[in-house]
Amino acid sequence: MDKIITEENFKAINFSESSIEYNEFEHCTFINCNFQNCDLSNLKFIDCDFEDCNLSSAKTKNTSFQTVNFKGCKILGVHFDECNAFGLTVNFDSCQLNHSIFYQLQLMKSKFIHSKLIEVDFSDSDLREVSFQNSDLSGAVFENCDLQKSDFRNTLNYSINPEINKLKNAKFSNDGIGGLLDKYQIKIEY
């Protein structure tokens, strides 16, 4: 039987040390909570906000994130590719997502702004109209991605091969254009 909680605020709770009593959260806010190494498998988060939380290494097998916003969160090494793909809608602002995996996901119109996405895997993902503005994409993998109309303005350290990704109408800043030419090993001087 589903245990659902709605419109609740959770502050400074260490879920790593206590069991999670509910399996569905709707319109809930989590502030300064610790989910590090937690098993979030099969849980549903619908229209929820996470602020200044730690979700590093959380297990997300069949987890539902439907219209979920993360702000100022530490989310290292999370396998979003194992989440329930139905209705998956996530946005990140000022988050650390290093070593996380978004393989083969439909993330159209998502936001990854002001965030660190070091060595994140986006392979085979639909990233149309996604905003990566002001983020650091050092070592991020973009292979066979649909990046049409995505926004890379003021984004740092990306390397995207235009021959194996769809880039029609994507936006780039002049100072970052070299990230599209890395494969050719040419030097661009500004």
Rank of each mutant, 00 (worst) to 15 (best):
T6K: 14
E7M: 06
N14Y: 05
N14T: 10
N14E: 11
S19E: 12
E24D: 03
F25R: 00
E26D: 07
H27Q: 14
H27K: 15
Q36F: 07
C38Y: 01
D39P: 04
D39Q: 05
L40G: 02
S41H: 05
S41C: 11
L43K: 13
L43E: 01
I46T: 11
D47L: 13
C48D: 02
D49E: 14
E51S: 15
D52V: 08
N54F: 09
K61D: 15
N62Q: 14
N69R: 09
F70N: 00
F70S: 00
C73I: 08
C73V: 10
K74L: 14
I75C: 06
G77A: 13
G77L: 11
F80T: 02
D81A: 11
D81K: 09
D81Y: 12
E82F: 14
E82D: 13
N84C: 10
F86Y: 06
G87K: 03
L88R: 00
T89S: 13
V90N: 06
V90P: 03
V90W: 04
F92P: 04
F92R: 05
C95N: 09
N98Q: 13
N98T: 13
I101E: 11
I101N: 15
F102G: 01
M108C: 12
H114N: 15
S115H: 03
S125V: 07
V130Q: 02
S131F: 05
L137T: 04
S138V: 09
G139E: 10
E143T: 12
L147S: 05
D151L: 10
F152C: 06
N157I: 04
N157F: 12
I160T: 04
I164S: 10
N165Y: 08
N165P: 02
N165S: 09
N165G: 09
K166L: 15
K166M: 12
K166G: 04
K168E: 15
K171Q: 14
D175K: 12
L181K: 08
K187L: 12
E189P: 02
E189G: 10
